[in-house]
Amino acid sequence: MIEYVVQQVVNALAAGSLYALMAVGLAMVFGILRLINFAHGDLMMIAAYVAAFGLGAGLALELTIPLMVGGTVLVGLLMERVAYRPIRGAPDVATLLSSFAVGQILQNGTLLTTRLAGQPTLIAFPAPAGLGGVAAVGPITVPLVNIVSFVAGIVLLGMLTVFVTRTNLGLSMRAAAEDLSAAQLMGIKVNRVVATAFAIGSALAATAGLLFAVQAGQINPYIGFTPVLKAFIAAVIGGFGSIAGAVLGGYILGALEVFVTAVAGIGDILPPGSVSPEVRAFLQQWLPSALASYRDAIVFLFLILVLLVRPQGILGQRDRGDSL
């Protein structure tokens, strides 16, 4: 039983790290531009493809990672420059829909490229040495990539924290997220801050993309869709626009998902004699293993609940008008 719990906790932390890495990028951009960038998930997908290409060509992981991060950041900056900058200040919905269009272009562009390269839509992801396999501590076994995900998440988010508190650019980013026109009055260059947010978000999404691809073992052009929805939920739970909130929301979401999966069918897993037959029957009836396949629906219900009860999230403040 204790092994089961430890494994689930590690799973929750690993999933939480990935969601947090994704959510932070969404939240940074949202904080400054009030843009929900749904194409953020496709950055993750692009990263996975670049990594698959690099690893498939026999490049070492140490060489593939910079290539992957660089390529993804480039795509992220390009998307901001070409698609989002011309419509800055447009109504919320217009920018949101534009990000859907950008996502369609990235997905189908990838599809087209793989076709031209003579590859199938679904390709196996070549697990790099050092990320595959399992780690075993006594009776507890955990996929190595889960541990790496957790550690990578903590390290990168720690670096981000240093950046936004210690450097002028990071400070400018936080100021712009809180009050864009007041930040402009400090002499902050909005374009530079926005580009920085996109670059950092892309780099974090790239890392998440690699880890996600290793976990899944295969990739296709549409793998970014569900993660970006989850990242959005994470960002909303934490309080949209706040970096700390996005991180917190990511881990809460990871925990929630693993919890739903873990309690589903709990009545069948509990060792004999640990609970009375009535309790077991109750659990089997109300927490059937089929519940696990409703995980995404439960998570979205949770999102809608948060939006209704506390739209500003756990750490967020109520939005105040940004006009000066």
Binding site: L171, R174, E178, S181, A182, L185, L324
Partner: peptide
């Protein structure tokens, strides 16, 4: 330098950070 109506200080940032932002350029 424009000190705007309604003060518009960055509420979630510290006083020190607000002052640093004034000289960010």
């Amino acid at each position: 330098s424009h000190c705007p109506e309604g003060r518009r200080i960055f509420g979630s940032l510290t006083v020190g950070e607000n002052l640093r932002l004034g000289a960010v350029t």
